[in-house]
Design a protein around this nucleic acid. Structure first.
Lengths: 337, 337
DNA sequence: CCCGCTGTTGCAAGCGTGTGCAAATGCTGC
DNA sequence: GCAGCATTTGCACACGCTTGCAACAGCGGG
């Protein structure tokens, strides 16, 4: 049981009776090799179990084919779905995803980026963490492409992909009003993410425009538990809201559960609820939640597409900001769909 | 806006007034450098923004620090949780995770492994796909360590981490019987994964041992939708079961939802339900599902620990199979906890 | 004063690949 | 048969790093 080491291009060349360059060219798309040489090389390579050493290749080309995904809350439904789509599409584009988890807050985003740089990643896609300016700078200065998803940031250079959170929130107000709701509430977390805040502002503004006031409550961190607490708070008020827009589907799930089980309210009869993200659970019959769909697939494809374009210096002339529309998915948590 | 290229050890050496080797040694733990040299190198490196090129380092050392995670169904709650834990612990051990998604079935596991090999990954952790023998062989022959999670395979070499699915299923029978249930059913998918099948066999065997029969139904692929269909089938039978063990929490969620909303059954009064995995949704108050917890954290730490041990040739002498206990988490979906 | 020892340092040889350049080869047209 | 050209091939260098080896400095003991 000898630990068979990796086989190098040199060995393949010897076996095939050609030069090492021929081997290299065989595995380099667009290089000049005769059909015959190619055949012999491929045959020898297969027999020996040869695989191009991407490390060495990356060293030469100064581009590794690696794309870093910098992400927190991987286990969260929305993030997981986005991650799935991104990895799939990156793979399809011949790139490979390096996953960096920033859940532990010990300055790990920083260490993560540094890691990414050490592996000479061609690009980083950030779907988490505060868009720390210095970090992004570091990234760009190293010649990396950078994509920020749902992280507003005013720097030029990176591609920013965002949704129309503000406008979407307005559309929910319309839906609530059409359902005959009068006492609107917005349930948010304290995370303060730009997209969360945009939803809040959009919701409040649209309500005001119709002459309605909205109760805003914020608590904790964007998850199911926070939704429960928010329901606690909002439903024990003197004037119960009859419509709640939750900044996130997870919040909405927690909210609905306590509204039903603890306050025995009926949805959508006594309370209309809307969420955001369209996570899988939103479609489960226990929730049947009307919500906004994140166009994960489009987000991913836009990002990968942008990364694949060879545009070394066409950086700041074109608009690097993408604004996608969040489509409302009608389900049963608002009356009269 | 000049595209600042990466800075090399050479430049750092010049700036610090030392040789390139000194720089290299400064960043190599355990190498012999004087405190003074070290200080000057670090200073210069910091000023220039130097980062060791892991590609080149990996080329020399013949180990890249990369660990491949080969996974399907990333967006699934259990998988996402495991993924989270693995990336976190790998990072902690100074390794970096390369994520390979095998959702698309176009022989992508094969391509994935090949990818892993091309990047000279030190190890691969497989939590998906059929444990294709030739693939695993390929992996091992290239000197990679291999970890299989919940994928039984009888090859020596890889570390196999499994749960006591068979015995756990037996414990659920006891719980059902104690709750006074008499008509047991098992809801499974058609995926036929070893662990799923072990749960089924264990459940049936334990019931038989108590002189009870169990209705087994299998449908589709392990998800929420399949759970709904399984409920359809099992609850329209002439003799409705009064206890169902679902092979997976996701199945259980789908099952409970149609049992309640479509058959207006009350859980746990008319129907006891148990699941497996303890995904986050199991604890949501709409489900409050009694289930088995996957010890994700332990699984991850065992895997990472094993990978970090320097055991080049102590391969087949010790038992490479780990069997962890799935702990039953009592919630409200079984009477009389 | 010299010997041997310990701790640092620099040199240079690799690691496995891509690629520019020049040589070689094959082919066409006269 | 030979010039002219297009295509293929091999040589050799570069990429950024690690590490064995030898040189060297410092230092205490005899």
């Amino acid at each position: 049981m000898s630990t068979k080491v990796y086989v190098s291009a040199q060995e393949v060349a010897e076996k095939a009776g050609v030069s090492r360059s021929a081997v290299s060219r065989t595995f380099t798309p667009g290089a000049s090799v005769s059909a015959e040489t190619r055949r012999r090389v491929l045959e020898a390579a297969d027999a020996l179990g040869y695989h191009v050493n991407e490390l060495a290749r990356g060293l030469m080309r100064n581009e590794s084919g690696i794309v870093c995904l910098i992400v927190s809350d991987v286990a969260t439904p929305y993030r997981a779905a986005l991650l799935r789509e991104l990895t799939l599409q990156l793979q399809n584009a011949g790139k490979v995803a390096m996953l960096i988890n920033t859940d532990r807050s010990d300055g790990s985003v920083d260490r993560a980026l540094r890691q990414a740089i050490s592996y000479r990643a061609d690009a980083s896609i950030i779907l988490s963490g505060l868009p720390d300016k210095s970090i992004a700078q570091l990234c760009l200065r190293s010649g990396q492409r950078l994509v920020l998803i749902n992280r507003d940031d005013d720097q030029p250079g990176p591609l920013r992909i965002n949704l129309d959170d503000y406008e979407a929130a307005g559309r929910v107000v319309t839906a609530f009003v059409r359902a005959g709701c009068r006492r609107l509430a917005f349930a948010n977390s304290e995370a303060g993410t730009p997209s969360l805040m945009a939803r809040e502002r959009g919701f409040v503004a649209a309500a005001r425009a119709l002459g309605m006031d909205v109760t805003v409550e914020r608590y904790g961190w964007t998850g199911y538990e926070a939704g429960k607490v928010l329901a606690q708070r909002l439903l024990t008020r003197s004037e119960r809201p009859d419509a709640v827009f939750c900044a996130t589907d997870l919040l909405a799930c927690g909210f609905m559960d306590t509204a039903r089980h603890q306050f025995s309210m009926s949805i959508p009869n006594q309370l209309c609820v809307a969420g955001f993200d369209d996570i899988e659970q939103a479609s489960w019959s226990s929730y049947d939640l009307t919500t906004f769909a994140q166009p994960v697939s489009t987000i991913a494809s836009k990002a990968v597409e942008w990364l694949s374009e060879a545009q070394p210096e066409a950086v700041s002339n074109q608009e690097q900001s993408l604004r996608l529309r969040a489509e409302l998915v009608w389900r049963g948590s608002i009356r009269g769909g």
